[in-house]
Design a protein around this nucleic acid. Structure first.
Length: 429
DNA sequence: TCTGGGGTCCTAGGACCC
DNA sequence: TCTGGGGTCCTAGGACCC
């Protein structure tokens, strides 16, 4: 059995913990740029404020009903999350922290609905955060149970065990496919085309038909609905594939200088993040885009990536590369809305051995060359603008967990010569 | 006028390699 | 007219998640 513990209106609940006067009042929490509403209290939901709604579209309701509006405070939410998770860890040995406000628990034989109710009360008492708990024989069924618990809180008291319920099919029949975990707008539409609109219909569908129209993803969900576990509990989160830092501009930006300034911030944040994780990046990507909501504006969206000749997490050298990349894709005459950077092909700093780094010969950016170039242009030789980042721990001998990158084949996208970087394609739509 | 950020996985076509 | 097969890596975009 699997339990899904999900915090209710998590960000709003966190704000209330530190301001109990907000109890019972409609409140919302905003996205990063204060652009969208990403968390709503029950009272705010009752006013018809939709999830993800742009703030400016809701100003009327907010004013009329005196809805309290908060900018997001991720430090606070992360801290509250850690408190909730630590309580869960005391309860069971196997737990997957799925997101900031959700965790799957692997239940041992004696864990029943009553224990779940006690756990829920304990979390509320110790942290002030209300949660709902759903129990099922697979992750997907636990998700469905959780949804039912949340939708019928007065009836369920926030806890629902689908596995021991007398009429599980009734619950599935009550769950629309577009409320299913893993089914978005598109897959819901595809299912509708097969006359499937509820989880029950999905559960009883022909496996071959599901396989054909939805591929392995659909088949996995079908099995999970039938109590055959296909999604394992991941106790240890898999290695991170990449780190991104991006922001939208409050008002459109047109000059290269403004984009560079923003990008410098993003590179600083991204590199700081990988240093904290003890990682090095071997590849860097920069992108810029115009405002897709302004249909009348000419649109431009482009990204460019480059493989580095050695892994690094040094802010200055990554910034130098990012700036060069930005110049390659920047086109004047557009109103830019967003820019960002991605550090990918991450390597564990401790496992990295320079001798083992089999970087491509022709298709790479020579970091030192760039650094020298920039220092020559901007700096005084005794006092370089940019210095090389440390290269991690040099290991002796061949023992230990060596990291080896597969040699890359020649590709026209990569060159050591900046002047030979590919011209931006005409992306005007 | 204003409409988030950070992820994963998948697909498809082109370039390239052997 | 017909014109390999199998693989990787690239870019770009879609779909989904919270």
């Amino acid at each position: 059995m699997i339990a899904l513990v999900d915090c209710n209106n998590f960000f709003c609940s966190c704000e209330r913990v530190f301001n109990p006067a907000l109890q019972g009042k409609p409140i919302v929490v905003l996205s990063n740029n204060d652009g969208c509403i990403i968390s709503r209290s029950e009272e705010a939901k009752a006013l018809g404020i939709p999830m993800g709604a742009p703030l400016h579209e809701q100003q009327e309701v907010i004013r009329k009903h005196d809805v309290q509006v908060f900018s997001s405070n991720y430090t606070l939410y992360g801290d509250m999350s850690a408190r909730v998770m630590s309580i869960l860890r005391e309860e069971v040995t196997t737990i997957e922290v799925y997101s900031i406000d959700e965790a799957f628990l692997k239940l041992t034989g004696n864990f029943d609905e009553e224990m779940a109710r006690a756990l829920r009360a304990k979390i509320l008492q110790w942290t002030g955060i209300p949660v709902c708990i759903g129990i099922g024989s697979t992750k997907l069924l636990a998700k469905i149970a959780n949804r039912h618990a949340k939708k019928n809180k007065t009836l369920t008291g926030g806890v629902f065990d689908l596995a021991s319920y007398w009429d599980p099919e009734g619950i599935l029949a009550d769950t629309p496919t577009d409320g299913l975990w893993g089914v978005g707008k598109n897959l819901a539409q595809r299912l509708k085309g097969m006359d499937i609109t509820t989880a029950l219909g999905f559960q009883q569908a022909d496996p071959a038909a599901i396989r054909t129209s939805m591929g392995v993803v659909g088949e996995r969900m079908l099995r999970e609905l039938n109590g055959i576990s296909c999604l394992e509990l991941e106790e240890v989160p898999p290695d991170r594939k990449g780190v991104m830092a991006s922001r939208s501009f409050g008002s459109p930006v047109e000059t290269l200088e403004e984009l560079e300034e923003a990008l410098a911030n993003h590179v600083a944040r991204a590199s700081e993040k990988i240093r904290r994780y003890g990682l090095l990046a071997t590849r860097l990507e920069v992108f810029i885009k115009t405002n897709r909501f302004r249909k009348d504006d000419p649109q431009y969206s482009r990204g460019i990536a480059i493989t580095l000749d050695r892994p690094t997490n040094g802010t200055a050298e990554l910034m130098a590369v990012a700036r060069e990349l930005l110049q390659r894709i920047y086109r004047p005459g557009y109103r830019y809305k967003k820019t960002g950077v991605q550090l990918v092909h991450l390597v564990d700093e401790d496992a990295y051995q320079p001798g083992l780094f089999d970087a491509p010969k022709a298709n790479r950016i020579d970091l030192d060359k760039i650094i020298d170039e920039i220092n020559r242009r901007l700096g005084d030789p005794k006092n370089p603008v940019i210095t090389r980042a440390s290269q991690g721990t040099q290991r002796s001998g061949s023992g230990g967990k060596g990291w080896q990158m597969k040699a890359e084949r020649h590709s026209p996208h990569y060159t050591t010569d900046w002047n030979q970087l590919p011209e931006a394609k005409n992306s005007v739509i």
